[in-house]
């Protein structure tokens, strides 16, 4: 009985440990996308060279 209880406790610990580890790995894997999309926002669109406001020479 004691052994079974102990194993149960170990199973829960193992699961918790694996859950935390999995979460950390997911965070590391997602990091390039997070940084990448932040970089994308920084790449502003270039203003066009040939245009005018409507009505400016009408």
């Amino acid at each position: 009985m004691r052994m079974r209880e102990m194993m149960k406790r170990n199973r829960h610990s193992r699961r918790r440990f694996l859950g935390v580890l999995g979460g950390m790995l997911a965070g590391v894997v997602a990091l390039p996308w997070t940084v990448g999309s932040a970089r994308e926002k920084k790449m502003a669109m270039r203003e066009a060279d040939y245009y005018r406001p409507r009505g400016s020479d009408e």
């Binding site: 066009a48 060279d49 040939y50 245009y51 005018r52 406001p53 409507r54 009505g55």
Partner: peptide, 13 residues
């Protein structure tokens, strides 16, 4: 604030 593109002959408004 409309603009007129002057790059190509379409001159899109």
């Amino acid at each position: 604030r409309e603009v007129v593109c002057e790059l190509c002959p379409r001159k899109c408004v």
